[in-house]
Amino acid sequence: MSAARYSYVGLNLREQDAQAEHGAQTLIFGFWIFLMADLVVFALLFATYAAMSVHGVADGPAPAELFSLKMPFIETLVLLLSSFTFGMASLALKYSAKRSSLAAWLLVTGVLGAVFVAMEISDFATYISEDQAPPQRSGFLSAYYLLVGTHGVHVVSGLAWLLVLLVQLAVLGRVREVKLRLLRLALFWHMLDVVWVCIFTFVYLFGASA
């Protein structure tokens, strides 16, 4: 049944129960809607940033003076890699009976996420202390910190969620609820990557190409 297998990657409940399948579909669909509402939030932050990075520089630094490509590039690689490792975790969840390989992939993902957050914080610290570019300096900087910071807060929430799920894996085992939560966390994590693609393009690459 290849259709059923693909219906949601990571979902292999090994249950024939139509009721359970329906419940899972409902949860995932609801989560997709949440993700889309979240995406609208990001879209508006992007639109605000796009306007303010041009009109709102005031007497602060312009994007081209502030951004370099090195850190964003490394951050991008880290985040992309974490998406891949989460994909491996999804496969382990679906096919491997061993709890350890699932936990290992999740841990790797978590570490990569933490590295990403740490790099972002160090970016912000550098901008604020060395470039005198705190969010209070100009509209452009306000919009920059809010946009990139909101993405960062999402990653942190994803990490917290991951931690809770690791505990649940240990305590409750691979029960249906935990599987479905891992599946939704996977969607969340991959969606953050999509947002990051827009951030490195419209914030950093646009800023550097002026």
Partner: peptide, 11 residues
């Protein structure tokens, strides 16, 4: 790249 992410990661 967004299309790639939707296709290969978000299935």
């Amino acid at each position: 790249q967004i299309v790639v992410h939707f296709r290969y990661f978000l299935h």
